[in-house]
Amino acid sequence: MTEVPPPLLEARKLVKTFPGRRGGRAVDEVSLIVRRGEALGLVGESGSGKSTTARCIAGLLRPDSGRVLVEGQEVTSPRARRRGRRRVQMVFQDPYSSLNPRMTVADLVGEGLYVHGIEPDRARRRDRVVELLETVGLDSGHLDRYPRSFSGGQRQRIAIARALSVGPDLLICDEPVSSLDVSVQAQVLDLFADLRETLGLALLFIAHDLAVVHHLCGRVAVMNAGRVVEQGERDQIYRSPGHPYTRSLLDAVPVPDPAVERARAAARGWDGPGAQSAEQQKEGEGL
């Protein structure tokens, strides 16, 4: 055994291609590391491969090649994956389709406790579900209601409680706030920050919104056309990006401050290489 403990999650040279897809590999030799308690943001535009990467890591897609390790243990075999999967849980973008509409909140949040044999006793399982709901800021009075009677933000809290139920060390979140209104998004982002602090939870946070990632993640990886073009500490990426693609993304992120926006527009000098070449490139892909 080595002296340095292995990272919580490591993805090594993941490759994924989809048949018939033009423009090459969806994921092209992506390597990432998430350490215990750390939040890594994975950002990119649509089609960059960030969601496919997340799904390969979560075991929802089988990569063509490459390895996924949880604390140094390979989780690519089915048995190992089940073990690893408890440690790694996923939260999806759309809380309307990710929750079974025919299950009550108690069943949705309790399912993992039952399936993994964590809490076989029905009454104690219910108590645990109540605790989990409180952790994510939901009233335990909702136990026997169905997803349809909840707002988008509340549904996302249910999905988070469900993910937390099996005691994971890492949450993979794929655009978990992008379908929410700004005030609800703020509450869910605050919840993620709380969970990191109180549970020591690590996050792999996939988002197209660079401001959201800046807010939540201490380390950032930027993807473009299936590749990680740059990764590093938050301040380094946002204050002195090394890659022109990262710079062009940051230049385009709107800042809710009219004075700042005027200054940026004056400095920008449009028809620069950034936006135009991105669209030309997509045009070539026939999107």
Partner: peptide
């Protein structure tokens, strides 16, 4: 409620 890239994180 809007996160900003020129703001203090957290």
């Amino acid at each position: 409620a809007v996160p900003r890239i020129d703001d203090s994180p957290g």
